[in-house]
C-alpha cells in the first residue's frame, strides 16, 4: 500500500463516517457541519484523482457558499425532533423499499462492470505544465458547448423562478431610495426657528 492509497482510505473513512453522522446526529446544526466535513473529504478524494479544479470548485461552491446558507437557515429553525420522528415506524416499510431499490439500481450502474479498472483505467500521471483547468475549459467550450450552455440556461431559469416565487409585493411596503437619501439638503431636514429669548424672571430675594 503506497502513500496515495493511505490518503484515499483516510479521506474515505472520514467521508463515510461524516455521511453516516449527517443522518444519525440529533442536532440539525451538527448534521449540517458533518455534511460540510463530508464535502471536504470528497474534495480530498478528487484531489488524489488529479482533478484539482473540480476538487477546489467543490469546496468553493458547496462548502463556501451553499452550506453557509444552509447552516444559516438551520441555525434559526427551532426543530422539534420528537415531532419529526413521530411517524418513523409507519413509514419504515415504504422507506426501506425505496432505499433497497436505490441500492440495487446504483450497484447495477456503479459496479465494476462499468467503472472497473479495465474500463476506466487509473489516470496517467501528467507531464509538468499540464493544466487541468485549461483542459476542462477547452473541453467545456468546444466539445460540450451545447450541453454546457443548456445547463447554464436551466440554472438561470431556476434562479428566475426562485425569485419570482418568493417575491411578494405588498401594498403598504415602504421602500427607500438611496439616491434621494444621498441628495438630501439640510433645508429639507432641518427647520431653523427663531425663538425670541424669554425674559428671565429675577428671583425675589
Amino acid at each position: 500500500m503506497n502513500f496515495l492509497t493511505g490518503v484515499f482510505y483516510f479521506f474515505s473513512a472520514i467521508l463515510l463516517f461524516s455521511g453516516f453522522r449527517v443522518i444519525t446526529t440529533r442536532n440539525p446544526v451538527h448534521a449540517a457541519l458533518f455534511l460540510v466535513l463530508a464535502f471536504f473529504s470528497a474534495s480530498g478524494i478528487w484531489l488524489t484523482l488529479e482533478a484539482e479544479f473540480l476538487a477546489i470548485s467543490l469546496v468553493l461552491v458547496y462548502v463556501g457558499a451553499v452550506m453557509v446558507l444552509f447552516l444559516f437557515v438551520v441555525m434559526m429553525l427551532d426543530i422539534n425532533l420528537d415531532r419529526l420522528r413521530e411517524g418513523f415506524w409507519s413509514y419504515l416499510p415504504l422507506a426501506a423499499f425505496v432505499a433497497i431499490m436505490m441500492v440495487i439500481e446504483m450497484s447495477l450502474v456503479v459496479g465494476s462492470r462499468t467503472f472497473g479498472l479495465s474500463i476506466v483505467p487509473a489516470p496517467l500521471p501528467h507531464p509538468a505544465g499540464y493544466s487541468n483547468t485549461r483542459e476542462l475549459g477547452r473541453l467545456l467550450y468546444t466539445d460540450y458547448v451545447y450541453p454546457f450552455e443548456l445547463a447554464a440556461v436551466v440554472l438561470l431559469v431556476a434562479i428566475v423562478a426562485a425569485i419570482a416565487l418568493t417575491m411578494r409585493r405588498r401594498k403598504n411596503t415602504r421602500y427607500q431610495d438611496p439616491a434621494l437619501q444621498v441628495r438630501v439638503k439640510r433645508s429639507q431636514r432641518v427647520r431653523l426657528v427663531s425663538m425670541p429669548a424669554e425674559k428671565t424672571s429675577t428671583p425675589e430675594s
Binding site: I56, V59, L60, G64, V68, F72, N132, T133
Partner: peptide, 22 residues
C-alpha cells in the same frame, strides 16, 4: 506553486465564515 492557486485562495478564504457562524 499550485496551478489553480487563485481558485485555491477563493475556496480557502470562503471557509473563514464558518468560524463566525459557529
Amino acid at each position: 506553486n499550485v496551478d489553480a492557486g487563485l481558485l485555491y485562495i477563493m475556496a480557502i478564504t470562503s471557509m473563514g465564515v464558518y468560524g463566525v457562524v459557529i
